[in-house]
């Protein structure tokens, strides 16, 4: 992948803040085949953390190229968050490509499950045809964290307009995404009504991501 170990920036290895930043910039050009386990997964996670803390805000990720229908940012997020502890569920478009399952097994070692309710992460390439949110794990009243996080690939953050409110948003935020199911706002309202149970959504368009955690109130505009 590259010949710089994660330790190159370590002070004892002669690295320092200046050297380190330059290394990071020169090492990556566009989407890579794989990612530096320490730095790149931190960057992808941090972007997602910011997005989850500020629902509807967009962040651009340095993506990872993976077999279609993987979007570069979806692959980067899966590589930085999924491992043997996190069962993945694939929608029909993802499941149809054998290379997808091979890539996941090789890079993450994550088990792939048939039942959406058993998944920690669900990968959805066909957003307009996404299954009802209730099919995924909603967590329990005692452990609402035991729920599925949906990674939903869309074409762009434009189109159907929504207004978002809730924790992380000062007053309200305008948001747009397409394609999504026609009754998306209704589905999100039902999801919000379950709080603290419910699922969290991450929307992905190419290298851009935005999060709609269960705490957000989504209104069609």
């Amino acid at each position: 992948m590259n010949n710089l170990s994660p330790f190159a920036a370590h002070p004892r290895e002669g690295g320092g803040p200046e050297v380190k930043k330059q290394d990071l910039d020169s090492r990556f050009r566009g989407n890579e085949r794989s990612m530096d386990p320490a730095y790149e997964s931190q960057a992808a996670f941090r972007a997602l953390m910011d997005c989850t803390a500020r629902p509807g805000e967009l962040r651009k990720l340095r993506g990872v190229s993976a077999p279609a229908p993987f979007a570069p940012a979806t692959a980067a997020l899966i590589q930085s968050l999924a491992d043997y502890e996190t069962p993945l569920w694939l929608d029909a478009a993802f499941a149809a490509e054998k290379k997808v399952a091979d890539w996941i097994r090789f890079h993450c070692g994550a088990p792939i499950v048939r039942e959406p309710g058993e998944a920690a992460f669900a990968l959805i390439a066909d957003a307009a045809a996404m299954p009802p949110l209730a099919q995924f794990s909603q967590g329990t009243a005692e452990y609402p964290d035991r729920s599925t996080t949906l990674l939903v690939q869309i074409e762009s953050f434009a189109g159907t307009p929504f207004t978002l409110r809730g924790p992380g948003i000062k007053a309200s935020r305008e948001f747009a995404a397409s394609p999504l199911p026609a009754d998306f706002a209704v589905r999100m309202k039902e999801n919000r009504a379950l709080f603290p149970r419910g699922v969290d959504l991450v929307l992905v368009a190419g290298n851009d991501i935005a999060a709609l955690p269960r705490s957000v109130a989504v209104e069609a505009r």
Binding site: F7, T52, T86
Partner: peptide
């Protein structure tokens, strides 16, 4: 000399903690 992964923790531990942080933000106060 002993060397550490970036920020001491191994990557699997960080993934586990990061997943917990994301859930924590999604369910404020839980």
């Amino acid at each position: 000399a002993p060397v550490y992964n970036f920020a001491y923790l191994d990557e699997q531990t960080k993934r586990m903690i990061r997943r917990a942080i994301l859930k924590a933000i999604a369910i404020p106060g839980y």
